[in-house]
């Protein structure tokens, strides 16, 4: 007789039948919806900054979601691996949208965009995060995965510093003591911490035994 399925196995069974491509449609629809809201006064009386923030916020959420995939698998055996590429690519597109609103609608001058990147540390940090995502987006196709082999894995660890830079970028632009950027930074550092092999912890266990 077969052993009864664990909850994780049952969830994975359902997920196996769910394709990843609708995530792209959802992402595009969400981006378009936010833009439409900005256009029609539904993001408040200053829609440029609001739209900029909405796109940046969505990008950070997607980065957190992408980083959560591996720990989720390790700790619960629930696998979202097949959705991770879509999550990562969408994060890149929302960062691109965030950057575009900033450069085209907010700052409105290439010269000032460049000056801000050089002169304002929180912009510099955000820009570095954006640049870091570009090679990841470019190599997020099957061909690159095959061609790069083991190098692909190393390259895509670039998302770790990118995530931290993204959270620092948010923290840096906030005025006063604000909770939200700290929550993002905490989540990201926490998710990265699950990837560290804690030698100390194992020694601790041995001592207990």
């Amino acid at each position: 007789m077969a052993r009864p399925l664990t909850p994780a196995q049952r969830i994975n069974g359902v997920l196996r039948r769910v394709p990843a491509w609708p995530l792209y449609l959802l992402g595009a629809a969400w981006a378009a919806f936010l833009f439409w809201q900005g256009l029609t006064g539904r993001l408040g009386v200053e829609p440029i900054n609001a739209l900029e923030r909405e796109y940046g916020d969505t990008a950070l959420k997607l980065i957190v979601a992408g980083l959560a995939v591996t720990p989720l698998l390790r700790f619960t055996r629930v696998s979202l691996i097949k959705f991770r590429r879509a999550i990562g690519l969408l994060a890149f597109f929302f960062v691109l949208a965030h950057f575009s609103v900033w450069a085209l609608l907010d700052v409105q001058s290439l010269e000032r965009v460049w000056a801000d990147i050089l002169k304002r540390p929180y912009v510099t940090v955000g820009m570095l995060a954006f640049l870091g995502l570009i090679p990841l987006a470019l190599t997020s196709n099957d061909l690159s995965v095959r061609r790069l082999g083991r190098k692909w894995r190393s390259l895509h660890k670039l998302v770790y510093p990118v995530a931290v830079l993204g959270a620092v970028h948010y923290l840096w632009l906030a005025k006063g003591f604000q909770i939200e950027p700290l929550v993002y930074l905490g989540l990201i550092l926490g998710l990265l911490a699950t990837r560290i092999r804690w030698r100390g912890l194992r020694i601790g266990r041995r001592a207990e035994a």
Binding site: G41, E46, R120
Partner: peptide, 20 residues
């Protein structure tokens, strides 16, 4: 301001394509 320029401003109420 150390984190942004004070040379220009955006007048509230101009919508998504308002200029500085």
């Amino acid at each position: 301001h150390p984190r942004w320029s004070q040379a220009t401003e955006r007048r509230i109420g101009g919508g998504l394509f308002s200029s500085r």
